[in-house]
């Protein structure tokens, strides 16, 4: 810690405030676990009901772009960790650079996702599309429903994360590194969700 952290009502000591912020954010992450958990539950049921059809649908998911995105997000987690620890150690140049790198990687993820969506749509891989290649195939249709639903929800989470990370650039980080700490917790959580989605969406096909 380089300088005295800014205290916010009702706290009187930095340690207590930090504990509360981390605890509060983890409570929020617990809600996120249950939120995505509801989805994973439906996914598990659907896959068990028709594993063959499911795999048939999943085989059409773009493994290359999905894997590129996994690496991008993994790397962004690493850079944001550097940013947070640099801010806490008072190394501001490092922190700013790492935050910018994180923003770039996160944006790249969304851009790749956009290209992937365009390709999926050009191949009519949308369950309501008239030329949907799997119409009538239960497992594959449900796979593509889940694919679109959960990648959109994940992208919304990531966009919110980008906003929170960008906000760090405008903060007095040497005195408000606690904000950086809780922001990274959220970002890493979104990363973990993707690490779980990657095999569920891209690796169940081959």
């Amino acid at each position: 810690m380089s300088s005295t952290p800014i205290l916010v009502e009702p706290f009187e000591e930095p340690e207590r405030q930090r504990e509360a912020m981390v605890f509060g954010l983890w409570l929020f992450l617990a809600t996120e676990i249950l939120f995505f958990g509801g989805f994973f539950f439906l996914y598990a049921v659907a896959r068990m009901q028709d594993p063959v059809g499911f795999a048939k649908g999943a085989a059409r998911a773009n493994l290359l772009l999905g894997t590129v995105n996994t690496v991008l997000l993994m790397t962004s987690s690493a850079t944001l960790t550097v940013a947070e620890r640099a801010a806490q150690a008072g190394w501001m140049r490092g922190a700013r650079g790492a935050i910018l790198a994180t923003l770039a990687l996160g944006t790249a993820f969304l851009a790749v996702k956009g290209f992937e969506y365009r390709e999926d749509l050009s191949e009519h891989l949308f369950p309501t599309s008239p030329a949907f290649p799997f119409s009538g195939l239960v497992g594959a249709t449900r796979f593509w429903s889940f694919y679109w639903f959960v990648t959109i929800v994940h992208a919304i989470h990531l966009t919110i994360g980008l906003g929170c990370v960008a906000r760090l650039l405008r903060l007095d980080l040497p005195r408000r590194w606690m904000v950086a700490e809780v922001t990274t917790l959220y970002w890493h959580f979104v990363d973990i969700i993707w690490l779980l989605l990657w095999p569920l969406l891209y690796l169940v096909g081959p």
């Binding site: 894997t67 996994t70 690496v71 993994m74 790397t75 987690s77 690493a78 850079t79 960790t81 550097v82 620890r85 640099a86 150690a89 190394w91 490092g94 690490l195 990657w198």
Partner: peptide, 20 residues
């Protein structure tokens, strides 16, 4: 200290990458 911060993150990243 800067090196510890960066290398620590790279180490974990490498492990994540290899697992993936």
């Amino acid at each position: 200290e800067q090196r510890t911060i960066v290398l620590g993150a790279i180490g974990i990243w490498a492990a994540l990458f290899l697992l993936g």
